[in-house]
């Protein structure tokens, strides 16, 4: 059961990474980047590295995601005006 978990996790990580890079819509790419960060958190914790998982959850998924969303808001607002 552990092997199935790891295999599915690795496949989902690679799939989300590829989708993040290949998506033309920038907002969707940011969403997929957040999803990728969450999956990477699960990978680190599955590798028994809770400290790196903590850093990834805080920096990778949370703060960078919020900053990128904020940047999109600023860019869209500037385009509109």
């Amino acid at each position: 059961m552990g092997f199935a978990f790891d295999l599915l996790l690795a496949l989902a990580l690679l799939w989300s990474a590829w989708r993040t890079l290949a998506t033309p819509d920038i907002f969707r790419a940011v969403i997929l980047f957040i999803v990728f960060g969450l999956l990477l958190t699960l990978v680190w914790s599955r590798l028994a590295a809770p400290d790196i998982a903590l850093a990834e959850a805080a920096i990778g998924a949370g703060l960078t995601g919020a900053l990128l969303l904020d940047a999109i808001g600023v860019l869209r607002g500037r385009k509109k005006s």
């Binding site: 969450l38 809770p50 995601g65 904020d70």
Partner: peptide
């Protein structure tokens, strides 16, 4: 590994921050 509970707490907090950032700043 009990430390993973702390990771879960951080994840819960920062997912909420990303959601608020989306609703307040990103959606025009």
């Amino acid at each position: 590994i009990p430390a993973l509970v702390d990771v879960a707490l951080t994840l819960a907090l920062l997912a909420a921050i990303a959601g608020i950032a989306f609703a307040r700043r990103a959606w025009h």
